[in-house]
Design a protein around this nucleic acid. Structure first.
Lengths: 104, 104
DNA sequence: GACTAATATGTTTGACTGCTTATATAATTG
DNA sequence: CAATTATATAAGCAGTCAAACATATTAGTC
């Protein structure tokens, strides 16, 4: 099992996610627009799915893959303090840690 | 050269970042609190530094490492649409893409 | 300037991962 | 049900990377 961080570290997978961002896409379109080989695309989609970053529903012989936003919670949760530190300084960060209880 | 995504994919490096979050820390403390070996810690800090995620200033024979929040821009910038999609739905995402011009 | 403390680098090894090619499964059409 | 389209899986190879261990560098102390 890999974390969302591992999964998203791969440029090809970020590209696939970006292609799915605005709505569900069949694999064929993802293959065409990403430039990845079909098996390669399929493998990456599998990894994304196992990590909970995308989901898949069948429509005829196609499979429609779409982004699963909740899957990004792990990354977003970890990143938030650093973004706060960036935009609000150390005191914004401390307030956040206070609230989330991670400051103990 | 590796992207911020690659760098942050490593759990040990996220841990080090977390240890530096509240302020600059000397390497020795990071070694002690992370449980990583000293060379290993040093190597990870090097990677973090090369990626612009931390910076380093010398104080006597110690080196104080601290988080460099701007370094997180790449990740934050990529992640934002997905967080928006999560919290605000597709229309929040579309407004954002409109503004940032990535929607063309 | 020898000695110690603090940190960095080099090397090797083992594990993991992505890509390619070939093949298998599943749904669709005639 | 044969043929075709769409997607998934398998096996092999090559490149990458983190950990361990040894060693080098830099700064402070006597």
């Amino acid at each position: 099992m890999s974390t969302a961080f591992d999964v998203v570290a791969e440029p090809a997978r970020r590209q696939l996610l970006d292609l799915m961002m605005l709505g569900p896409r069949p694999v064929g379109e993802l293959v065409a627009e990403s430039g990845l080989s079909q098996p390669n695309t399929s493998r990456h989609l599998r990894v994304l799915r196992d990590a909970g970053l995308v989901e898949c529903r069948a429509q005829g012989q196609r499979r429609l893959y779409s982004v699963r936003p909740q899957g990004f919670a792990e990354i977003a949760g970890w990143l938030t303090p650093y973004v706060l530190l960036w935009q609000g300084g150390i005191d914004a960060l401390e307030r956040h840690l206070e609230q989330t209880g991670k400051g103990a």
